[in-house]
Computed example of a mutant assay.
Amino acid sequence: MHLKLVTTLALVAPSHALIRFGCSQLVVDRLDPLVEPGNAPSAHLHQIIGGNSFVPDMSPAKHDPAKLSTCTTCQPADDFSNYWTASLYFRARNGTYKRVTQKANSGFEGQNGGMTVYYMQNQLADYQQKAKVKAFQPGFRMLIGTPTASTKAEADRYPQLTYTCLQDMGTRFPETKNFPKKPCPSGIMVNLRFPTCWDGKNLDSPDHMSHMAYTESGTFESQGPCPASHPVRMPQLMYEVIYETAPFNDASLWPEDGSQPFVYSFGDSTGYGNHGDYVFGWKDDALQKIMDEECFVRCSTMRTQTIEQMNNCSVARKVVEDVGDDNWLTALPGHGHMKRTSSS
Protein backbone atom coordinates (compact mmCIF):
# COMPACT_ATOMS: atom_id res chain seq x y z
CA MET A 1 0.00 0.00 0.00
CA HIS A 2 1.40 3.36 -1.04
CA LEU A 3 0.62 5.23 2.18
CA LYS A 4 2.27 2.67 4.46
CA LEU A 5 5.18 2.39 2.05
CA VAL A 6 5.72 6.15 1.96
CA THR A 7 5.54 6.41 5.74
CA THR A 8 8.02 3.57 6.26
CA LEU A 9 10.53 4.53 3.61
CA ALA A 10 10.55 8.19 4.60
CA LEU A 11 12.55 7.11 7.65
CA VAL A 12 15.40 5.82 5.45
CA ALA A 13 17.98 8.25 4.03
CA PRO A 14 17.45 8.55 0.25
CA SER A 15 19.76 9.83 -2.47
CA HIS A 16 17.33 12.12 -4.27
CA ALA A 17 13.76 13.33 -4.03
CA LEU A 18 10.28 11.91 -4.22
CA ILE A 19 7.41 14.22 -3.32
CA ARG A 20 3.77 13.38 -2.70
CA PHE A 21 1.28 16.13 -1.95
CA GLY A 22 -2.40 16.98 -2.00
CA CYS A 23 -4.16 19.58 -4.13
CA SER A 24 -7.67 20.82 -3.45
CA GLN A 25 -10.19 21.42 -6.18
CA LEU A 26 -9.81 24.78 -7.95
CA VAL A 27 -12.98 24.49 -10.04
CA VAL A 28 -15.14 22.05 -11.97
CA ASP A 29 -15.66 23.55 -15.41
CA ARG A 30 -16.15 22.72 -19.06
CA LEU A 31 -12.75 24.03 -20.17
CA ASP A 32 -9.72 22.37 -21.77
CA PRO A 33 -6.91 24.82 -22.64
CA LEU A 34 -4.76 22.09 -24.23
CA VAL A 35 -7.19 20.29 -26.54
CA GLU A 36 -9.65 23.14 -27.07
CA PRO A 37 -7.73 26.38 -26.39
CA GLY A 38 -10.01 29.38 -26.11
CA ASN A 39 -13.26 27.41 -26.12
CA ALA A 40 -15.77 28.09 -23.36
CA PRO A 41 -17.42 25.65 -23.19
CA SER A 42 -15.21 22.77 -24.19
CA ALA A 43 -16.72 19.42 -25.12
CA HIS A 44 -16.79 17.88 -21.65
CA LEU A 45 -16.45 18.66 -17.95
CA HIS A 46 -13.18 18.53 -15.97
CA GLN A 47 -12.01 18.89 -12.39
CA ILE A 48 -9.07 21.34 -12.30
CA ILE A 49 -6.52 21.87 -9.53
CA GLY A 50 -3.54 24.19 -9.05
CA GLY A 51 -2.94 27.86 -9.82
CA ASN A 52 -5.86 30.30 -10.00
CA SER A 53 -4.80 31.76 -13.37
CA PHE A 54 -6.50 28.85 -15.17
CA VAL A 55 -8.35 30.22 -18.22
CA PRO A 56 -9.63 28.88 -21.57
CA ASP A 57 -6.54 30.05 -23.48
CA MET A 58 -3.23 29.22 -21.81
CA SER A 59 -0.89 29.35 -24.82
CA PRO A 60 2.73 29.71 -23.62
CA ALA A 61 3.19 32.98 -25.52
CA LYS A 62 0.64 34.72 -23.35
CA HIS A 63 0.29 32.61 -20.21
CA ASP A 64 2.77 31.62 -17.50
CA PRO A 65 0.88 30.21 -14.48
CA ALA A 66 3.81 30.86 -12.14
CA LYS A 67 3.67 34.59 -12.94
CA LEU A 68 -0.07 35.09 -13.33
CA SER A 69 -1.44 33.03 -10.43
CA THR A 70 -1.92 34.64 -7.03
CA CYS A 71 -2.73 31.40 -5.16
CA THR A 72 -2.66 27.65 -5.64
CA THR A 73 -4.77 24.78 -4.37
CA CYS A 74 -1.65 22.59 -4.04
CA GLN A 75 0.31 21.99 -0.86
CA PRO A 76 3.65 23.23 -2.31
CA ALA A 77 3.41 27.02 -2.13
CA ASP A 78 5.57 27.40 -5.28
CA ASP A 79 3.50 25.09 -7.48
CA PHE A 80 1.11 27.08 -9.67
CA SER A 81 0.86 24.31 -12.27
CA ASN A 82 -2.56 23.16 -13.45
CA TYR A 83 -3.61 19.53 -13.46
CA TRP A 84 -6.99 18.30 -14.70
CA THR A 85 -8.99 15.14 -15.34
CA ALA A 86 -12.49 14.36 -16.62
CA SER A 87 -15.41 14.36 -14.20
CA LEU A 88 -17.26 11.14 -13.39
CA TYR A 89 -21.04 10.58 -13.30
CA PHE A 90 -23.40 7.97 -11.90
CA ARG A 91 -26.12 6.97 -14.35
CA ALA A 92 -29.34 5.87 -12.66
CA ARG A 93 -31.70 3.21 -13.95
CA ASN A 94 -33.98 5.92 -15.36
CA GLY A 95 -31.11 7.35 -17.43
CA THR A 96 -30.47 10.48 -15.35
CA TYR A 97 -27.02 11.53 -14.13
CA LYS A 98 -25.46 12.80 -10.88
CA ARG A 99 -21.85 13.97 -10.65
CA VAL A 100 -19.57 11.85 -8.45
CA THR A 101 -17.47 14.10 -6.22
CA GLN A 102 -13.75 13.64 -5.50
CA LYS A 103 -12.40 13.08 -2.01
CA ALA A 104 -9.06 13.53 -0.27
CA ASN A 105 -6.50 10.75 -0.05
CA SER A 106 -5.25 9.37 3.26
CA GLY A 107 -3.04 11.95 4.93
CA PHE A 108 -4.86 14.89 3.37
CA GLU A 109 -8.14 14.78 5.27
CA GLY A 110 -9.93 18.12 5.15
CA GLN A 111 -8.81 18.82 1.59
CA ASN A 112 -11.65 19.91 -0.71
CA GLY A 113 -11.82 17.19 -3.37
CA GLY A 114 -8.89 17.49 -5.74
CA MET A 115 -6.26 14.76 -6.07
CA THR A 116 -2.86 13.56 -4.90
CA VAL A 117 0.17 14.41 -7.05
CA TYR A 118 3.56 12.69 -7.14
CA TYR A 119 6.88 13.73 -8.70
CA MET A 120 9.42 10.90 -8.56
CA GLN A 121 12.93 10.05 -9.72
CA ASN A 122 12.30 6.32 -9.51
CA GLN A 123 9.34 4.10 -8.81
CA LEU A 124 7.55 4.66 -5.51
CA ALA A 125 8.94 1.52 -3.89
CA ASP A 126 12.55 2.62 -4.49
CA TYR A 127 13.46 4.74 -1.47
CA GLN A 128 16.94 5.42 -2.86
CA GLN A 129 15.54 7.55 -5.71
CA LYS A 130 18.98 7.50 -7.37
CA ALA A 131 18.07 8.57 -10.90
CA LYS A 132 18.97 12.14 -11.81
CA VAL A 133 16.12 13.91 -13.59
CA LYS A 134 15.63 17.24 -15.30
CA ALA A 135 12.61 19.15 -14.04
CA PHE A 136 9.94 20.36 -16.45
CA GLN A 137 10.56 23.83 -17.86
CA PRO A 138 8.37 26.98 -18.19
CA GLY A 139 6.00 26.50 -21.11
CA PHE A 140 5.97 22.72 -20.77
CA ARG A 141 2.67 20.91 -21.08
CA MET A 142 1.49 17.40 -21.87
CA LEU A 143 -1.43 15.03 -21.72
CA ILE A 144 -1.77 11.27 -21.56
CA GLY A 145 -4.58 9.00 -22.69
CA THR A 146 -7.48 9.76 -25.03
CA PRO A 147 -11.24 10.08 -24.48
CA THR A 148 -11.83 8.28 -27.79
CA ALA A 149 -10.40 4.95 -26.56
CA SER A 150 -13.24 2.44 -26.36
CA THR A 151 -11.42 -0.90 -26.29
CA LYS A 152 -8.73 -2.44 -24.11
CA ALA A 153 -6.39 -2.58 -27.11
CA GLU A 154 -6.72 1.19 -27.55
CA ALA A 155 -6.27 1.80 -23.81
CA ASP A 156 -3.17 -0.41 -23.72
CA ARG A 157 -1.32 2.24 -25.75
CA TYR A 158 -1.14 4.02 -22.39
CA PRO A 159 -0.01 1.24 -20.03
CA GLN A 160 0.13 3.35 -16.91
CA LEU A 161 -3.49 4.55 -16.78
CA THR A 162 -5.46 2.31 -14.42
CA TYR A 163 -8.17 1.97 -11.78
CA THR A 164 -8.17 0.59 -8.24
CA CYS A 165 -11.36 -0.51 -6.49
CA LEU A 166 -10.73 0.71 -2.95
CA GLN A 167 -11.77 -1.81 -0.30
CA ASP A 168 -10.36 0.71 2.19
CA MET A 169 -8.24 3.85 1.82
CA GLY A 170 -5.03 1.80 1.81
CA THR A 171 -5.96 -0.49 -1.09
CA ARG A 172 -3.65 -0.19 -4.11
CA PHE A 173 -4.00 -3.51 -5.92
CA PRO A 174 -5.17 -4.98 -8.18
CA GLU A 175 -5.27 -2.36 -10.94
CA THR A 176 -7.51 -2.63 -14.00
CA LYS A 177 -7.74 -0.81 -17.33
CA ASN A 178 -11.53 -0.55 -17.12
CA PHE A 179 -13.96 0.67 -14.49
CA PRO A 180 -14.52 -1.77 -11.59
CA LYS A 181 -17.56 -3.95 -12.20
CA LYS A 182 -18.65 -4.18 -8.54
CA PRO A 183 -19.27 -1.53 -5.85
CA CYS A 184 -16.06 -0.23 -4.25
CA PRO A 185 -16.52 0.40 -0.50
CA SER A 186 -14.09 3.34 -0.28
CA GLY A 187 -14.36 4.67 -3.81
CA ILE A 188 -12.73 4.30 -7.21
CA MET A 189 -9.14 5.50 -7.51
CA VAL A 190 -8.02 6.63 -10.95
CA ASN A 191 -4.26 6.31 -11.44
CA LEU A 192 -2.50 8.36 -14.12
CA ARG A 193 1.26 8.00 -14.66
CA PHE A 194 2.78 10.17 -17.35
CA PRO A 195 5.69 9.24 -19.65
CA THR A 196 9.13 10.18 -18.33
CA CYS A 197 11.36 10.53 -21.41
CA TRP A 198 11.59 13.94 -23.15
CA ASP A 199 12.94 14.70 -26.61
CA GLY A 200 15.02 17.48 -25.05
CA LYS A 201 13.77 20.10 -27.53
CA ASN A 202 10.03 20.68 -27.55
CA LEU A 203 8.00 21.96 -24.62
CA ASP A 204 4.86 20.79 -26.38
CA SER A 205 3.77 19.00 -29.55
CA PRO A 206 0.64 19.15 -31.73
CA ASP A 207 -0.89 16.13 -29.97
CA HIS A 208 0.62 17.20 -26.61
CA MET A 209 2.18 13.73 -26.30
CA SER A 210 4.80 13.19 -29.03
CA HIS A 211 7.52 15.20 -27.25
CA MET A 212 7.35 12.61 -24.46
CA ALA A 213 7.82 8.82 -24.53
CA TYR A 214 7.77 5.80 -22.27
CA THR A 215 11.01 3.99 -21.46
CA GLU A 216 12.15 1.42 -24.01
CA SER A 217 11.11 -1.44 -21.73
CA GLY A 218 7.62 0.00 -21.50
CA THR A 219 7.08 1.33 -17.98
CA PHE A 220 8.65 3.65 -15.49
CA GLU A 221 8.63 0.86 -12.90
CA SER A 222 10.87 -1.34 -15.06
CA GLN A 223 13.62 1.32 -14.88
CA GLY A 224 14.40 0.80 -18.55
CA PRO A 225 16.46 3.33 -20.55
CA CYS A 226 14.90 6.19 -22.45
CA PRO A 227 14.78 5.75 -26.24
CA ALA A 228 17.37 7.61 -28.35
CA SER A 229 14.60 9.81 -29.75
CA HIS A 230 13.68 10.98 -26.23
CA PRO A 231 16.95 10.83 -24.26
CA VAL A 232 16.21 13.22 -21.37
CA ARG A 233 14.85 11.62 -18.21
CA MET A 234 12.22 13.74 -16.43
CA PRO A 235 10.29 13.16 -13.20
CA GLN A 236 7.51 10.62 -13.12
CA LEU A 237 4.36 12.71 -12.75
CA MET A 238 1.50 10.72 -11.24
CA TYR A 239 -2.08 11.58 -10.26
CA GLU A 240 -4.32 9.70 -7.86
CA VAL A 241 -7.94 10.82 -8.14
CA ILE A 242 -10.44 9.23 -5.75
CA TYR A 243 -14.11 9.34 -6.68
CA GLU A 244 -16.50 9.08 -3.73
CA THR A 245 -18.80 6.34 -5.00
CA ALA A 246 -20.23 5.37 -1.58
CA PRO A 247 -23.58 7.19 -2.14
CA PHE A 248 -24.13 5.01 -5.21
CA ASN A 249 -22.92 1.63 -3.94
CA ASP A 250 -26.37 0.22 -3.23
CA ALA A 251 -26.70 -2.57 -5.80
CA SER A 252 -30.43 -1.83 -6.16
CA LEU A 253 -29.43 1.47 -7.81
CA TRP A 254 -27.26 -0.26 -10.40
CA PRO A 255 -28.51 -1.35 -13.84
CA GLU A 256 -30.76 -4.41 -13.77
CA ASP A 257 -28.50 -6.19 -16.26
CA GLY A 258 -25.61 -6.06 -13.77
CA SER A 259 -23.46 -3.65 -15.77
CA GLN A 260 -21.51 -0.95 -13.94
CA PRO A 261 -23.22 2.49 -13.76
CA PHE A 262 -20.37 5.00 -13.88
CA VAL A 263 -19.66 7.11 -16.94
CA TYR A 264 -17.15 9.84 -17.71
CA SER A 265 -18.32 13.33 -18.62
CA PHE A 266 -17.50 12.57 -22.27
CA GLY A 267 -19.81 9.54 -22.33
CA ASP A 268 -17.39 6.64 -21.79
CA SER A 269 -18.77 3.87 -19.56
CA THR A 270 -15.84 1.47 -20.09
CA GLY A 271 -13.11 3.53 -18.43
CA TYR A 272 -10.78 3.03 -21.38
CA GLY A 273 -10.98 6.75 -22.15
CA ASN A 274 -9.01 7.64 -18.99
CA HIS A 275 -6.85 10.73 -19.64
CA GLY A 276 -5.19 13.63 -17.84
CA ASP A 277 -3.64 17.01 -18.65
CA TYR A 278 -0.73 19.01 -17.22
CA VAL A 279 0.55 22.57 -17.63
CA PHE A 280 3.81 23.26 -15.77
CA GLY A 281 3.78 26.26 -13.44
CA TRP A 282 6.36 25.85 -10.67
CA LYS A 283 7.97 29.13 -9.65
CA ASP A 284 11.55 29.70 -10.86
CA ASP A 285 13.68 26.55 -10.27
CA ALA A 286 11.74 25.37 -7.22
CA LEU A 287 10.95 21.94 -8.67
CA GLN A 288 14.54 21.27 -9.79
CA LYS A 289 15.85 22.17 -6.33
CA ILE A 290 13.45 19.68 -4.77
CA MET A 291 14.37 16.95 -7.25
CA ASP A 292 18.06 17.51 -6.46
CA GLU A 293 17.56 17.34 -2.70
CA GLU A 294 18.17 14.20 -0.66
CA CYS A 295 14.66 13.72 0.68
CA PHE A 296 11.66 11.43 0.60
CA VAL A 297 8.21 13.11 0.74
CA ARG A 298 9.33 15.63 3.38
CA CYS A 299 11.74 17.97 1.56
CA SER A 300 13.21 21.06 3.20
CA THR A 301 13.36 22.98 -0.07
CA MET A 302 9.60 22.54 -0.66
CA ARG A 303 7.71 25.47 0.86
CA THR A 304 4.25 24.34 1.93
CA GLN A 305 0.91 25.85 2.86
CA THR A 306 -1.93 24.62 5.04
CA ILE A 307 -4.98 22.72 3.86
CA GLU A 308 -7.07 25.74 4.84
CA GLN A 309 -5.00 27.92 2.49
CA MET A 310 -5.32 25.31 -0.26
CA ASN A 311 -9.10 25.19 0.15
CA ASN A 312 -9.37 28.99 0.13
CA CYS A 313 -7.95 29.20 -3.40
CA SER A 314 -10.67 28.84 -6.02
CA VAL A 315 -12.11 30.45 -9.14
CA ALA A 316 -15.64 30.87 -10.44
CA ARG A 317 -16.79 28.72 -13.34
CA LYS A 318 -16.34 30.35 -16.72
CA VAL A 319 -19.16 28.20 -18.09
CA VAL A 320 -22.17 28.54 -15.81
CA GLU A 321 -24.40 25.48 -16.04
CA ASP A 322 -25.90 22.77 -13.91
CA VAL A 323 -23.23 20.05 -13.63
CA GLY A 324 -25.35 17.68 -11.54
CA ASP A 325 -24.06 18.38 -8.05
CA ASP A 326 -27.49 18.97 -6.53
CA ASN A 327 -29.86 17.92 -9.29
CA TRP A 328 -30.20 14.85 -11.51
CA LEU A 329 -29.46 15.69 -15.14
CA THR A 330 -31.22 14.30 -18.18
CA ALA A 331 -27.95 14.47 -20.16
CA LEU A 332 -24.27 14.97 -19.47
CA PRO A 333 -23.08 18.63 -19.68
CA GLY A 334 -22.43 19.39 -23.34
CA HIS A 335 -24.45 16.38 -24.51
CA GLY A 336 -28.06 16.30 -25.60
CA HIS A 337 -30.30 19.26 -24.78
CA MET A 338 -28.74 20.53 -21.59
CA LYS A 339 -29.60 24.16 -20.95
CA ARG A 340 -26.58 26.32 -20.15
CA THR A 341 -27.57 29.49 -18.33
CA SER A 342 -24.59 31.64 -19.29
CA SER A 343 -20.90 31.63 -20.16
CA SER A 344 -18.19 34.25 -20.13
Score class of each variant (00 low, 15 high):
M1R: 06
H2K: 06
A10F: 01
P14Y: 04
H16W: 01
S24G: 15
D29N: 11
D29A: 09
R30Q: 14
P37L: 11
S42N: 10
H46A: 08
N52C: 08
P65W: 01
P65Q: 05
S69V: 08
Q75F: 00
D78T: 12
F80C: 03
A86P: 12
A92R: 13
R93K: 15
T96I: 02
K98I: 11
R99N: 04
V100I: 15
V100T: 03
T101A: 14
Q102M: 09
A104R: 02
Q111P: 02
N112Q: 06
N112E: 06
G113Q: 00
G113F: 01
M115D: 01
V117L: 14
Y118S: 11
Y118P: 05
M120L: 12
M120Y: 00
K132F: 02
A135T: 05
F140S: 12
R141L: 11
R141F: 04
G145P: 02
T146P: 00
T148A: 13
T151I: 04
A155M: 08
R157T: 13
R157A: 13
Q160M: 14
M169P: 00
M169I: 05
G170D: 13
R172D: 14
K181F: 00
K181T: 15
G187M: 00
M189V: 07
V190T: 10
F194Y: 15
K201V: 15
K201E: 11
P206G: 09
H208L: 14
A213D: 10
T215L: 02
T215M: 09
G218A: 06
G218T: 05
Q223M: 13
C226M: 03
A228R: 06
H230Q: 01
V232W: 03
V232Y: 00
I242A: 04
D250T: 09
W254G: 04
D257Y: 00
D257G: 03
Q260L: 08
P261T: 08
F266K: 07
D268N: 11
G271C: 10
Y272L: 08
G273P: 10
D277R: 05
V279Q: 12
W282V: 09
W282L: 06
W282Q: 06
K289W: 01
D292I: 06
E293D: 12
E293S: 14
S300F: 02
N312D: 13
R317H: 10
E321A: 14
D322H: 07
V323R: 01
V323T: 13
G324A: 08
D326N: 13
A331P: 00
P333T: 12
H335V: 12
H337K: 14
R340P: 00
S342E: 11
